[in-house]
Amino acid sequence: MTCLPEIKPGQKKLGLVIDLDTCVGCQACATNCKEWNTSGHSAPLPDFHPYSAGAEGVWFNRVHSFEAGEGEQGRTVHFPRSCLHCEQPACVTVCPTGASYKREEDGIVLVNHDTCIGCGLCAWACPYGAREMDEDAGVMKKCTLCIDRIYNETIPEERRIPACVATCPTQARHFGDLGDPESAVSKLVRERGGYDLMPEMGYKPVNKYLPPRKRATVQAKPVEDAPTSMDIKNPLLRWMDRVLTR
C-alpha cells in the first residue's frame, strides 16, 4: 500500500548523518555503494556503454562539489547526495501500483522490483533526484540504506552498517536511529546544527547534513619585521645602519 504508515512517537527512523565538514569528496562511498548494491537487494545496477564514450549507469549515491560564499569566506564543499528516506515521501504516495513503500518498522523507503511498472512518476516526485530508473530491467531503483547489510546476520555485527558508511575514510558518514533523541546520530545532529535539505518542499527528510564548521576568524595580516636601530645588538651593524640612514 502506498499510503504512508502512521508515525507514532518514538518511531524508529533509520538514516544517515553526513558531515560536510569532513567529507573530502573521495567518491569512496559512491564506489562502495555501487559495488555492494550491484550484487545485493537491488542487483544488478546496470552500466550502459561502460567501455566507450557515453558511459553511464545507475548509482544510488552521487558526490557533487560546490563552491559557497565569496573571497576569504568562500568554501569548497563536497556533497554526497542519496535517498533521504523522508517522513513524507511523495515518491511513495504517487506510486500507482504499491511497488514503492515506506517500512513501518524503521522508515526505510523501498521499491518492490517485482511489481514496479517503471512509470517513472516517483522519480519526478522526488525533489532530491534519489531515484534512478534501471532502463535495462524497466524498474525504478534506489538506495535501500543497505537493508541487506544492516539486518544481515551472516556478517559480523560491526559490519552491519551501510556500505557507504563502512567505507568512508574520514568518517563523514554516520548511520543510526534518528527517531531516538538519545542515539549517537541524534546527539551529533543537535551538537553540530544538522539540517534538512530543501525543507520548503515539506518532505521532512530523515537524513541530516552537518554544516562545514565555522573558520577561525581571519587574523590581521602578519607585519613585516622592521627593526629600529635600538633593536640591533651587533655594534658593527648598528654603525652601518646609522651610516646608511643618514
Binding site: 560536510l20 560546490f66 559557497a68 560564499g69 565569496e70 569566506q73 568562500g74 568554501r75 564543499v77 556533497f79 525533489p127 532530491y128 539540517y195 534538512d196 535539505l197 530543501m198 525543507p199 520548503e200 547534513y209 554544516p211 562545514p212
Partner: peptide, 10 residues
C-alpha cells in the same frame, strides 16, 4: 536550500 550551504553564501 538544496545544499543547505546558503549559510556560507551564494
Amino acid at each position: 536550500s538544496a545544499t543547505g550551504l546558503g549559510q556560507i553564501g551564494k
